[in-house]
């Protein structure tokens, strides 16, 4: 009996480990995007201050500059429901494909997070006491 348990356990583990290939999405640096070809990838970074082009909070299509951790930038275009946390200076992850001729990243999916996640900095002008 225990042999069968071990075998079915091993089968599950095999299924899991092999399934990860082909479903994972690589994160790509802005500078390496032209080499990524037509496949879907992710770019992560900070939304540049002053880099959001849109008419106002009601606009559906937006374009913005994303600065990755090396400091390279890429222009991202997205059309859809804007995540609530999306704004200048926010951390953002865009998933989609890179259009090399136009040098634009077309995002299918956009996630954003407050700059400091849920931790907030102490109110300005106040030094921590004890």
């Amino acid at each position: 009996m225990w042999i069968w348990v071990a075998l079915s356990g091993a089968a599950v583990v095999y299924l899991v480990v092999t399934s990860i290939r082909g479903t994972e999405l690589p994160y790509v640096n802005a500078a390496d995007l032209p080499a990524s070809g037509p496949r879907a990838v992710r770019v992560a970074g900070k939304v540049a201050v002053g880099g959001i082009e849109s008419e106002g909070p009601g606009d559906v299509s937006i374009a913005f500059l994303l600065i990755d951790e090396r400091g390279d930038t890429v222009r991202v275009e997205y059309s859809g429901v804007r995540p609530d946390a999306f704004r200048e200076g926010a951390q953002a992850v865009a998933e989609g494909t890179y259009d090399a001729p136009k040098a634009v990243f077309h995002a299918e999916l956009l996630q954003a997070k407050c700059p400091s996640k849920y931790e907030v900095s102490p109110p300005a002008g106040v030094r921590p006491g004890t």
Partner: peptide, 23 residues
């Protein structure tokens, strides 16, 4: 495994990947 894989992958290979709902 799917939850921790990106963290392990980054530790080993130094580059980041994401494992999504598809997996």
């Amino acid at each position: 495994f799917g939850t921790c894989f990106p963290t392990m992958y980054e530790m080993v290979k130094g580059t980041r990947i994401s494992v999504g709902p598809q997996f």
